[in-house]
Design a protein around this nucleic acid. Sequence first.
DNA 1: CCCAATTATGAATAAATATTCCTAACATGA
DNA 2: TCATGTTAGGAATATTTATTCATAATTGGG
Lengths: 158, 158
Amino acid sequence: MKVKNNRLEALRMIISSQQLGSQEELLAALQKEGFRLTQATLSRDLKQLKVAKAASMSGNYVYVLPNETMYKRVSTPNSVREMMEVPGFLSINFSGNMGVIKTRPGYASSIAWNIDNSDIPQILGTIAGDDTIFIVIREGCSKREVTETLSRFIPNMK
Amino acid sequence: MKVKNNRLEALRMIISSQQLGSQEELLAALQKEGFRLTQATLSRDLKQLKVAKAASMSGNYVYVLPNETMYKRVSTPNSVREMMEVPGFLSINFSGNMGVIKTRPGYASSIAWNIDNSDIPQILGTIAGDDTIFIVIREGCSKREVTETLSRFIPNMK
DNA sequence: CCCAATTATGAATAAATATTCCTAACATGA
DNA sequence: TCATGTTAGGAATATTTATTCATAATTGGG
């Protein structure tokens, strides 16, 4: 529905540009933009947009837009031990024939070196920045296959 | 005070490892850890820690720990916007699941840093040379989607 | 175009959360 | 030590926010 989507978009804009601390204030802002709705609907909109309310530095509350990192959960209680195993490793993701490893700043090249010297046939090559490694995967190899192989020396991978 | 700080630390741990959706649940979790307090105190703790409550993918609410980016307002120049305003940026083009940004010599790494820190979920990672940045795009995300996201910061990009 | 099914929404209300108002615990300097 | 300022925290309450229960609007076949 058009009206609703416009409203959601307006809501995003309002939240990303102003610091409002209650639904009442958001409601007023939306109404100033010409949208006619009640608090009930606004509450549902906020839920759909996954907008969060958090305390601000100034001691008030602010509505904030969601982002990837805020939903991240640490996996298990032995995560400290796991962290020791391959220091610096943060995450790995795939897209098409590429893998992207994120590391702590400065760790990328040493991890990439390890991968390069492990002679993994599924991996054609890597290139490392400061905290990111790009991996090019051999044609026809699945991500799972690569993950399995990599996890032999990155135990905290998954 | 010791008790309070321990409690706040425990609270952080609980929130970062579990998905709890109400103060009642958090309260129970804290009490299981041996802390004795009421909802009122918990509310104050949450405010102090700047913990936020947001809708999760599963349709419930979750408490989430704060992070830098969630407080960013577009009025305070956003990094992607900054990137586009920076004289180093030249062009962006896509091929398959990759994007290539050309910059003036020497500018690539700082622009890539800006992209990395903008928390764009469609972008898995970037690697910068001297005047070129490679971007890997999340699977299933079209370049159009990436441009959409960028155009939220750069109106004239679309 | 019509109907069924879905989606959106408001009013009222339930539920959750923040704050007010105290009191108690603690810290500190004389 | 005492006096005094400061922080912590509970009970009750005010405020805010989510949901329930209906209706209305909208969409997608046929």
